[in-house]
Amino acid sequence: MKRGRGEPRQPPAQPDESAQRDAALVVRTLAGDRTAFDDLVRAHEKQALAVAYRLLNRVADAQEVVQDALLKAYRALDTLENPQVFGSWLLRIVSNLSLNYRRSRARRTGLSLEDSGRQDSHGGQNESLLNVLTSDQQLPEEELMTEELRGRIREALEELPDRQRTALVLFSIEKMPQKQVADVLGCSVEAVKWHVFSARKKLKEKLKLELSDLMDSDDEQDNAPI
């Protein structure tokens, strides 16, 4: 993968409490304390899985990618110049692996990305979410969303360029700060704003009907007599 000119090799510093904690755990790991890396895994596993799943739409693929990302992060931990940015660095690896995995999967199956995304919905043909959920896993409330609507939304998301989709997932869905999204993408905050703006514009156009329904229902709820 080519790195853009002038783009930082690693995300810049994020001096906050979690960043300080991550830095200490990275240092301990590099000193030979393997349990410190387990703590890093536990701290970032949930968000890494969520991002991978939203980019891949398959539970098993997301698990595989995150596991691979953690392994790669462990191997390359000594190359991380600023241990405070471990979280952004790991999400960058997860995002890259997810996008690469999607491309490989599409080539392997001979399906277009759109077809791949369509089949990857929870009730998809290849791998149903219900088949991979363990006994302690439950479908969220949002499963009430119809499969047809979910398919249309995912299809629209799949059609976005990689960076726009990643920026939107990280910023709008994962609620990450723009600065951190910029660190993951390796671009400026302005570029993140532009990616998000462009992605939103395309999706609003494609999901015009769905959005109007959603906003109408919200209005009805707001205006409902108490």
């Binding site: 895994v41 995150v66 979410l129 896993q137 949002e142 979910r150 998301l157 869905i173």
Partner: peptide, 15 residues
């Protein structure tokens, strides 16, 4: 809308 459509299952974790 996007969040609901791409919501990962609860309990999703790595091995």
């Amino acid at each position: 809308l996007l969040s609901r459509a791409t919501q990962p299952p609860t309990g999703l974790r790595i091995d």
